[in-house]
Design a protein around this nucleic acid. Structure first.
Lengths: 182, 182
DNA sequence: AACGCCATGTAAGCAGTTACATGATTCA
DNA sequence: TGAATCATGTAACTGCTTACATGGCGTT
């Protein structure tokens, strides 16, 4: 379990409210760690109780007030401790791979329908790749002037890009196999 | 949720006991869907109650008896229905990516320790790739004579291979960034 | 005699999802 | 007037993990 740690990293990069964290998880952090706002609020509350983060009420014009969270020294220690633990092997779960193997037990018409679905899925990821590349251009226009933190953010983004490229190539192979008769 | 469906696919490929399924999930299926034996037994029981699978007691020499499961027509229908549903976007969770971004808030000594840990992780995945490639050679020695089912199994395995290669390349980039001073 | 493999489970607890809920402001 | 965005939550449920439990057989 590392949602706490993902939140700590995000708040260290920039303090923010639960709502802002939820948006970051939708966008950049969501590339490698997904979380809904419900989950974030619950975990954030626990982290506050445990003294890992502190909250300050911030009034805003023309918007509801928000509670801005900052990582405490105790939270920093927790993160450092976790960073030095071994990386846990990830629990893999690929819907699509199950379906591809399952397609062997479907009719020819069913496999044709799966071709359409895989194509749709492929288009979605092509779109995602385009957005990653646009984000890279926007956030890292000059790689020679990056700070340590920015360089690390950049290499993680490049991981997302490499993953999407690999996925698109593989989906092309899947489509070829699914289209083969019978 | 698709553990049920992964089990259905596996049992259609070859009927087997809960224990055998657990071993398959450790090996081949585990590449794209992980599950422990406890979970498998529980889900299998529910699937039996719902009539998706049927069990037969099989006595064995020099081994405990086992209950061999086979997919029923109802189970077949469930799988077909699921195959025609849209592919769910997967919940991504990459421990390591969180750590890499978190490394920006660790000391230089801490980052050096992370280099060791990432190297260990890389070696593990290099090993995994070697095993995938050996499995490919063993199970698919002649690609010109494969059945539809085998071709689909093969393309899924190639996905695993492509993923591991991409990962190794990315880990090399990560190591370069982590080693940069300061 | 001890260890590892085969084989099947129960029970407690936690993490994560889905549904429900409220209320203000801004823009079309 | 209605939809979208900002902002924060509660409640019920489901799925998954971890720990515990049993027992026979084969090998060293």
């Amino acid at each position: 379990m590392a949602l706490e740690h993902a939140i700590l990293v995000s708040l260290l990069e920039k303090p923010g409210s639960g709502y802002e964290l939820a948006r970051r998880f939708e966008r950049s952090i969501g590339r490698f760690w997904t979380a809904t706002h419900q989950q974030i609020y619950r975990v954030l509350k626990r982290m506050e109780t445990d003294g890992w983060v502190t909250a300050v009420d911030v009034g805003q014009d023309g918007r509801p007030d928000k509670r801005e969270f900052t990582v405490s020294p105790a939270g920093q220690d927790v993160l450092t401790g976790w960073l030095h633990e071994p990386v846990q092997p990830e629990a893999v779960r690929h819907d699509l791979a199950v379906k591809v193997r399952g397609a062997a037990f479907d009719s020819a018409a069913g496999r044709a329908a799966l071709v359409d679905e895989v194509s749709r899925y492929r288009a979605e990821h092509e779109d995602l790749l385009t957005r990653y590349l646009a984000g890279e251009k926007r956030d890292f226009p000059d790689i020679s002037t990056l700070s340590t933190g920015e360089r690390l953010q950049h290499v993680v983004l490049r991981g997302g890009i490499a993953y999407e490229r690999m996925l698109l190539d593989w989906l092309d192979e899947v489509l070829i196999e699914l289209r083969k008769e019978p």
